[in-house]
Design a protein around this nucleic acid. Structure first.
Lengths: 204, 204
DNA sequence: ACCTGAACACCGTTCAAGT
DNA sequence: ACCTGAACACCGTTCAAGT
């Protein structure tokens, strides 16, 4: 039994404090000194526990990107599940306060999110290789779409000289148009995958 | 006739110096002081000419993103041109040293790049509205794909604890696989557009 | 062993002072 | 009018010194 520490500062608390600052003031305002101040310590303990700022941001990203994908329903046809998977992924990524967090993220959250979709595609009749490729296609399309939709640093960095017609993305698309565009894209890709592999679209 | 200035420091020279630093050391290493030092001046003249750092980065992005799209060939069927347009756009974006530059970029470079593709789609029989939507679909898919492919800050920020299996993107995909994935995506989207609008795919 | 405070080498930005 | 140098309020990171 280890002696019960009076200072229970561990990596999770540091990450939690970082996330609060991230959500309140944005990624650009997140600093090691910020986090240390909020925890009432000097910066040094952060370095001994999480390494450095890049590692802290990685840990924050990992924390924000857990359970990224929904589970498949029983008997759900894979094209239905694939589209639902993409929509849910998009929704979760849009809640992430800065696209750098998921664009620079480690591989694990994406690998984990891929598993149920790959399984559903295999159930639908695709080969292992085809399922992996189809999953990657949908994932890249979805993550990339949201990155484009969010722009690089939207919320906490109100930039000058930018006429904010639609609020962030560089092409002046309204949220409704973005939704429509996303559904169109995912529909075309799902149809392409189905057409290419001729899988049984009625599920297991 | 204005008197010939001895100091011919203008905004273009500032942008040019910034681009050199950007290409040598990456976006994170670009600073107002850096640029001023390279030009042999104090930081103040930069502020009077370009405003602030965000405006400088905007100007750098504008400069890097001119002439983003290839022109259509005479009599080139629109699906061929659309795929070539996407591939060329991807190529140009991959040459941009940091995804933040095109994800946070102003609207103009994208509007300009859209024009010839929209014209080609209209020539192919799509309505104005359908052509705009199809162009957006391909553009978002392409820009998003490259953002995912490049990760957030690949070259000049070698991060620790990242096993560099494939060198940047968060999903462990080799360059060859990325090329294949991109062609697949663009092919599916082009087919979807053609199928939706039943345009005459043989061009004008 | 683990913390604090000071320090180093940077930032973006501004301002008084020079010319 | 336009520049410079110093300054202010920050950074990430490290290190000597304390307990």
């Amino acid at each position: 039994m280890t002696r019960s520490g009076e200072f229970e500062l561990d990596a999770d608390e540091i990450v939690a404090a970082a996330i609060v600052i991230l959500q309140e003031r944005g990624l650009d305002a997140l600093s090691m000194r910020n986090v240390a101040d909020r925890l009432g310590v000097s910066p040094m303990p952060l370095y001994t526990r999480v390494g450095n700022k890049a590692a802290l941001i990685d840990a924050v990203a990992d924390h924000l990107l857990v359970d990224l994908a929904p589970a498949a329903g029983a008997g759900e046809p894979w094209p239905d599940y694939a589209e639902r998977w993409c929509r849910e992924l998009r929704h979760r990524l849009k809640d992430t306060p800065d696209s750098r967090l998921y664009l620079g993220a480690a591989r694990e959250p994406y690998v984990e999110a891929s598993r149920p979709l790959i399984a559903a595609l295999r159930d639908g009749g695709l080969s292992a290789e085809a399922a992996v490729q189809a999953c990657r296609l949908l994932m890249w399309a979805t993550v990339g779409f949201v990155a484009m939709e969010q722009g690089s640093t939207p919320p906490a960095a109100p930039r000058a000289r930018r006429d904010a017609l639609s609020g962030g993305n560089p092409t002046g698309v309204t949220p409704e148009e973005a939704d429509e565009l996303f559904d169109l894209q995912i529909g075309f890709l799902t149809a392409g995958i189905a057409g290419m592999h001729g899988g049984d679209a009625t599920g297991g």
